[in-house]
């Protein structure tokens, strides 16, 4: 089932085009990473989905609903937090969740369960303003759980957290995913997204430049480490000339080539045809960060990385 589906969603703030003709979809059960540099339009897109920003044009469906009353019903089945944890600083964690539960029609038992879930039950009487950053984020996640949501939207949930806090949030996300919740996670922390997400969409300057599963994206951005007994500079020059090369850079006596198509055989054939025989051809493990940098660099029209 499609949980989120957008079609040509666009948002313009005056002369600034924040989100440009955005079309993507999220299926039930996915842990979906929404990636992009700061200012790429992630939060604006989520704001439109959550009804706090009015789209300039385009359409979207949430849990299959498209019209205003349907979207309102759908939003009651969504738990979401945008940017920072937004709570009343003078109220306790418990009272803040009471307010959310009041809106969502959730019981006190659910508040207790949510606080236990995020490990804040013992601190429930403390004022929100006294919480650490990690506790604030955990309270925000507890709030998203109150309505027993089908979809959880978390915008930059690891912002500003120390490694321990990040691990806590990552574990929580994994736990929620194992319970069958669909999670839509916006972040620019690629490491964390790679560890937590099953699927990603990469956003740049308000446009989706790639949507795929994490494994597909990493495989698709495969790199090869090649070496020759001959002239390394010639090898680098030829690798850069190869039509399927995304980038090539020298790494000691070797050359690392990032391939758009992942076809190592074709590269080897091309080099041999040019009279350059490789003595080493080893796949390099690609991370989401590598794939992200390749995609966002290529999309912006930046020159292909060339390092002698």
């Amino acid at each position: 089932m499609r949980v989120i589906e957008t079609q040509q969603l666009t948002k313009r703030f005056g002369a600034t085009l924040a989100v440009d003709d955005l079309s993507f979809s999220v299926d039930s059960g996915q842990v979906f990473g929404f990636l992009g540099p700061n200012g790429s339009g992630k939060t604006t897109t989520i704001g439109m989905l959550l009804g706090i920003i009015t789209p300039t044009s385009g359409q979207f469906r949430l849990l299959g609903e498209q019209d205003a009353p349907g979207l309102r019903r759908a939003r009651l089945k969504i738990g979401a937090t945008l940017e920072t944890a937004n709570f009343y600083p003078y109220l306790s964690g418990w009272d803040n969740l009471r307010l959310v539960a009041n809106i969502k029609g959730a019981s006190h038992a659910r508040i207790e369960a949510a606080l236990h879930h995020v490990g804040l039950f013992d601190r429930r009487a403390d004022r929100f303003r006294g919480y650490s950053l990690g506790m604030k984020q955990r309270l925000a996640i507890a709030a998203t759980l109150l309505g027993d949501p089908e979809l959880i939207i978390l915008d930059e949930p690891m912002n500003g957290l120390d490694p321990e806090g990040m691990r806590e949030i990552r574990d929580l996300i994994a736990q929620l995913a194992s319970e069958g919740k669909t999670i839509f996670l916006s972040s620019h922390l690629l490491n964390e997204v790679e560890r937590s997400c099953t699927h990603v969409a990469i956003l740049k300057r308000g446009r989706i430049i790639r949507q795929a599963s994490v494994s597909e994206l990493i495989a698709g951005g495969s790199a090869l480490c090649i070496g020759t007994d001959g002239d390394v500079e010639q090898l680098l020059r030829l690798a850069l000339q190869y039509p399927g090369a995304h980038s090539a850079e020298r790494d000691g006596n070797d050359v690392v080539v990032r391939l758009a198509d992942g076809d190592a055989g074709s590269l080897n054939r091309f080099l041999a045809e040019q009279g350059c025989y490789v003595s080493k051809l080893v796949p390099v493990e690609t991370t989401l960060e590598d794939a992200f940098m390749d995609l966002t660099g290529a999309e912006s029209g930046d020159p292909v990385q060339q390092q002698p």
């Binding site: 979401a80 937090t81 937004n86 709570f87 600083p89 809106i103």
Partner: peptide, 12 residues
């Protein structure tokens, strides 16, 4: 405090 925004996100 951005709680207006959060209230709407929560369902108002």
């Amino acid at each position: 405090w951005r709680t207006a925004r959060q209230n709407v996100i929560d369902g108002l």
